Amino acid sequence: MNLRCIIIDDEPNAVSLLEVLIGQTTQWQLLGKCYNALEAIEFLKKHTVDFIFLDINMPHLTGMELAGLLPKDTKIVFTTAYAEHAAESYAYQTIDYLLKPITLKRFVAATQKIDACFGKHASPPESITTKPEADYFFFKTGKTLRKILLDEVLYFESEKEYVRLVTGTEELLIYRRLKDIEEQLPQPFVRVHNSYIVNTRLLNKIQDNHIYIGTKQIPVSDKFREGFMEVIRQRIF
C-alpha cells in the first residue's frame, strides 16, 4: 500500500531509524523529514500526506501542541520516550503510540495497524460495533436470577470461568465467559482489556493508559485501545 507519510522529530538519530524501518518493511512514500514543528507546518501547507510520525518532546512547539493545530482528520503515529502521554494522544486521530527506542518487532506491529486503518473504512472496529439497546439484564447467580440495571454497572471483570459484575454497591459472580457477555452488551459498554469491560458513562478519568472507575484502576491494553478511544473521542470537547 503506497501510503504517503512524513517524519517530524528533532532527533536526527530517531529520524534516521524511522527512515530505515520504513524503507525495509513498507512500500510507503516518505515525502519528507521535518526537525521541528514550524518546519512541519510549512511542509504540510504544500504537501498532502496520509499520516505523520510525530515526536512529542520537541522545542518551540511540542508534538501535542502541533497535533492541536493540524486539521482534525490528520492521522498520527506518535513516537516518544514518554509513556505518560498515551491517553492524551488519543484525543487526536491517533493510529498508534510508539515508545522509543522503537524495535523492529514493534514497528512491524504498527505498520499492520496503519495499513488496517487505511484499508478498512467500510466497517467499524469490531470492539465498537453497535449492539441492541437494553436497560437491564437478568443474571444467574447460583439458583437465582438477579435483575441488574445496566446504568448501575461499573465494569465486568473476568475471573477464570466466572465474570465479576461490579456496581457502586455490590459485586456478583456470574458463571459466563466475558466474551459471551460482551456480545450482548450495548454501548456505552466497551472492552478495554482481555479481563475487563467498562461502562464508559461511569468512568472518572483516563490517565497513563489506565481507566479510573469507582475505586478501581483498570489498564487499557494495546489490543483494545483504539476501539475504546474511538468511543471516547465522540465525547471530547
Rank of each mutant, 00 (worst) to 15 (best):
I114V: 14
I114M: 10
I114F: 09
D115C: 03
D115G: 01
D115I: 07
C117T: 15
C117S: 06
F118P: 01
F118S: 01
G119P: 00
G119A: 00
G119D: 03
K120C: 02
K120H: 13
H121Q: 11
A122Q: 10
A122K: 09
S123F: 12
E126N: 02
E126I: 01
S127A: 02
T130F: 07
K131A: 00
K131M: 03
Y136P: 04
Y136D: 14
F138T: 09
F139G: 03
F139I: 09
K140Y: 06
K140G: 03
G142N: 12
G142A: 11
G142E: 08
G142P: 10
T144Y: 14
L145S: 10
R146N: 11
R146I: 12
R146P: 02
K147N: 09
I148C: 12
L149M: 05
L149W: 04
L150N: 05
D151V: 10
D151Q: 13
E152N: 14
V153S: 08
L154F: 15
S158H: 05
E159Q: 14
E161Q: 14
Y162W: 08
Y162Q: 04
Y162D: 02
V163I: 13
V163P: 13
V163T: 15
R164Y: 02
R164E: 05
R164A: 04
L165H: 12
L165F: 14
T167E: 03
G168N: 13
T169P: 00
T169V: 06
E170P: 02
E171V: 06
L173C: 05
